[in-house]
Amino acid sequence: SKNWSEDDLQLLIKAVNLFPAGTNSRWEVIANYMNIHSSSGVKRTAKDVIGKA
């Protein structure tokens, strides 16, 4: 699996709070948010995000 930096983990926590349970396509939305805002340049999929959340 791809390494997660501390910044990416913080971003994931922020995204999970921004897009609560019940959000349509929640994990796709979170992955997309991370891909836009992450400084690491690593592209995450919904599966990556679910695996780490």
Rank of each mutant, 00 (worst) to 15 (best):
S1N: 06
S1D: 03
S1A: 05
S1F: 10
S1L: 06
K2E: 11
K2S: 12
K2R: 09
K2Y: 10
K2M: 11
K2T: 13
K2G: 09
K2D: 12
N3P: 09
N3C: 07
W4Q: 02
W4D: 02
W4E: 01
W4I: 05
S5C: 06
E6W: 15
D7E: 15
D7I: 08
D7L: 12
D8C: 02
D8A: 00
D8N: 02
L9K: 12
L9Q: 15
Q10P: 02
L11Q: 03
L11A: 02
L11N: 05
L11E: 01
L11G: 02
L11P: 01
L12Q: 01
L12S: 02
L12I: 05
I13K: 14
I13A: 15
I13E: 13
I13N: 11
I13W: 14
K14A: 13
K14W: 03
K14E: 11
K14Q: 06
K14D: 12
K14L: 06
K14Y: 08
A15H: 02
A15S: 08
A15F: 01
A15Q: 00
A15M: 01
A15G: 09
V16E: 12
V16S: 12
V16Q: 15
V16R: 14
V16M: 15
V16Y: 13
V16L: 12
V16N: 11
N17E: 14
N17L: 08
L18M: 15
L18E: 06
L18Q: 05
P20T: 03
P20A: 04
P20H: 07
P20W: 00
A21R: 12
A21M: 14
A21H: 15
G22W: 06
G22M: 05
G22H: 09
G22I: 08
G22L: 05
G22D: 13
T23W: 05
T23P: 04
T23S: 07
T23M: 08
N24Y: 07
N24H: 15
N24L: 10
N24E: 15
N24G: 07
S25Q: 07
S25L: 07
S25C: 12
R26M: 00
R26A: 04
R26L: 00
W27A: 10
W27K: 02
W27Q: 02
W27V: 05
W27G: 10
E28W: 03
E28T: 06
E28V: 07
E28S: 13
E28L: 06
V29M: 15
I30H: 00
I30P: 00
I30R: 00
I30S: 00
I30Q: 00
I30M: 04
I30V: 13
A31E: 01
A31R: 05
A31V: 05
A31C: 08
A31N: 02
A31Y: 00
N32Y: 04
N32T: 10
N32F: 04
N32V: 03
Y33N: 00
Y33V: 01
Y33T: 01
Y33P: 01
Y33M: 01
Y33D: 00
M34N: 03
N35M: 04
N35R: 03
N35A: 05
I36Q: 15
I36C: 14
S38D: 03
S38T: 10
S38Y: 00
S38E: 03
S39Q: 11
S40P: 04
S40G: 09
S40D: 07
S40K: 06
S40Q: 09
G41H: 10
G41D: 12
G41L: 08
G41V: 09
G41Y: 07
V42F: 09
K43L: 12
K43D: 13
K43R: 12
K43P: 08
K43W: 07
A46M: 08
A46E: 12
K47V: 11
K47W: 07
K47M: 10
D48N: 03
D48F: 00
D48K: 00
D48V: 02
V49C: 13
V49W: 02
V49T: 06
V49N: 01
V49I: 12
V49L: 07
I50K: 13
I50C: 07
G51I: 09
G51E: 14
G51F: 10
G51L: 09
G51Y: 11
A53K: 07
A53W: 02
A53D: 11
